[in-house]
Amino acid sequence: MTATGSSVINKIDFKQILQKYGIVFVLILMIVGISIAEPAFLSRSNIFNVLTQSSIFGIMALGLTFVIISKGIDLSVGSILALSGVVLASLGQAASATSKYFPNMGELPVFIPILAALSIGALCGGISGALIAKTKIPAFIATLGMMTIARGMALIYSDGRPISTLVPSLTALGGKIFGFIPVPVIIFFIAIGISSVLLQMTKFGKNVYAIGGNITAAEVSGVNVSKNLILIYAYSGLLAGLAAVVFAGRVGSVHPGAATGYELTAIAATTIGGTSHAGGIGTIWGAFVGALVLAVMRNGLTLIGVDAYWQQITEGVIIIVAVVIDMRKNAKKD
């Protein structure tokens, strides 16, 4: 293909912009539509509300972006949230709690439960990754296994009961600073920043793309495929642990059945954001937009007064439509 003039270049650029930001236009259209129907949607508090709502599955979607770019899947993040969450809650109960998980333990410094949640998440993910890398079983199976194992462990650990009354420094993580900026949103943005840097600016990130793009070529080019696979799933698990911290902060207690089905919402957000299940394609930015699309839709439909159930219906349609658009765009390029 030879560019004969600047007009051709402009045309290509325009097309690329449309392809790259297609889902953003959808998001803007949604926002405009909802705001017309319900102006309260655009209030400062509601915008923060939407961001807060998107933060938990949004954080998971960031990890899934790594996983899906590497041509894998992680079904275990919802359960890992629950397991990390109950451990976090058990270590972070306030002295005033009526039913204490560790009756004789005083209040621990807040970083201990948080660190525990993150490490458990990373460990669970790392185990899935190791299974995938070493035994070559499909990621679907390994993480489906981890999904039920982690859920089972959460139930066993908590004896099926929610663990509540957390120390104020933990619940503060679900609150606001300066009276209006929700902490979950700040955590979400920090996670977005770190994930972006990891994916775009480090060797690890480049390897993730390479593994998803062509695993044989990656091996031949000297990429340590098994190590990177373990890291990818460990990072996904770590972010599920982080999501557990946010969850605990917002809800103030953690139920072992928490976050059931969140993995699918997170996968949906990632997919809507343009990350391809064929591997090698996707961005953190996309996952963020995907999470926003889902959150805006849920929030907007609720504001307009649409039955909560219709949100699920719309979600199902949006996933398929987003992927169809995405496939079209990739097909056209051939």
Binding site: L264, I267, Q312, E315, G316, I320
Partner: peptide
């Protein structure tokens, strides 16, 4: 996945 969500919602 899409149809699962769609029909559960319906």
């Amino acid at each position: 996945l899409g149809s699962m969500m769609f029909f559960r919602g319906l």
